[in-house]
């Protein structure tokens, strides 16, 4: 065997291994989606069924017989709402910091990041009581507020990094022309930073959507999100695996697709800008 042939063989083995590993990792997701198209009987068949006649009845039934739509709506409101609030607070701040940095700017950003490290369970009781006192227990609003605050540091840091990449010369030129600050943000910075803002929003939405601790602790029936709704199937009584799979598939599909789309930005966001 020549060196070239050996190299080729090695490469081929690597490719087969890569596919093998990928299939193993993806398998539980594939199986969940598959199960969602089975009848309840087929879902618990021994041995497990790979080939069967698919049915849509689970999807129809969860729309009709459960509050799935309500919980999905709660998830949409809380994750988009939390993200919107975080962006609204962060955009002006990150803008000001990026274009007028002082010697304290870095410390402020690092401090903000440190608030993200506060474990939720450490402030469980205070948040619980405050929510109850304010009459916000089991409301979407309390989750919007918490998600906004929890994600604010990450949003700030990523936006700051994006704004930093906008060349200062462009801004200086426009200032010479006497553009007001408001117009400067609206006409120059926003169009340039739009991509960064969109991907920051995407990351924040993903994190909110999958958040499980606060939604389980702070909601009971009214404001439960999909994570809490899915968690309610943990009880062994009345396990309906095919229906649970259908709920799970619907709950995860949009976020998985979001994740695929935003891979690159996610790396930056998830590592707080440390890996680009």
């Amino acid at each position: 065997m020549t060196d070239k042939q050996r190299e080729n063989l090695k490469n081929r083995i690597a490719v087969v291994a890569a596919w093998g590993v990928a299939l193993i990792f993806f398998f539980p997701i594939f199986w969940m989606v598959l199960t969602s198209f089975k009848t309840e009987g087929q879902a618990i068949a021994v041995p497990p069924l790979l080939v069967f006649e698919p049915t849509l009845e689970n999807y129809i039934e969860i729309q009709e017989r459960t509050n799935y739509v309500k919980f999905a709506w709660n998830s949409v409101i809380t994750s988009f709402g939390g993200t919107a609030v975080a962006l609204l607070i962060a955009i002006p701040s990150a803008y000001a910091m990026a274009f007028n940095p002082t010697h304290r700017t870095k410390d402020i950003l690092m401090w903000m990041l440190s608030t993200k490290m506060l474990p939720a369970v450490g402030v469980l009781m205070p948040i619980y009581f405050l929510a109850q006192k304010a009459g916000l227990f089991d409301t979407k609003l309390v989750l919007v507020i918490i998600y906004a605050m929890v994600n604010l540091p990450i949003v700030m840091l990523i936006l700051f990094n994006y704004f930093r990449e906008i060349p200062k010369e462009i801004l200086e030129a426009s200032r010479m022309d006497g553009t007001s600050t408001y117009n400067e943000i609206r006409q120059i910075v926003m169009p340039l930073a739009w991509g960064g803002i969109a991907s920051t929003a995407l990351l924040s939405i993903i994190l909110c959507w999958n958040e499980a601790f606060w939604s389980i602790v702070l909601t009971t029936t009214e404001a439960s999100t999909l994570t809490a709704f899915v968690a309610s199937f943990q009880a062994p009584e009345g396990l309906f695996w095919a229906k649970v799979s259908a709920v799970s598939t619907l709950a995860c599909a949009p976020i998985v697709i979001f994740g695929w789309l935003a891979q690159k930005q996610l790396v930056q966001g998830l590592t707080f800008g440390a890996v680009k």
């Binding site: 590993v21 997701i29 999958n210 499980a212 999909l226 994570t227 968690a231 799970s248 998985v256 891979q263």
Partner: peptide, 11 residues
């Protein structure tokens, strides 16, 4: 390979 990361923990 990266999909499992986006599945919500309860699911």
């Amino acid at each position: 390979l990266i999909s499992p990361f986006f599945i919500m923990p309860t699911v």
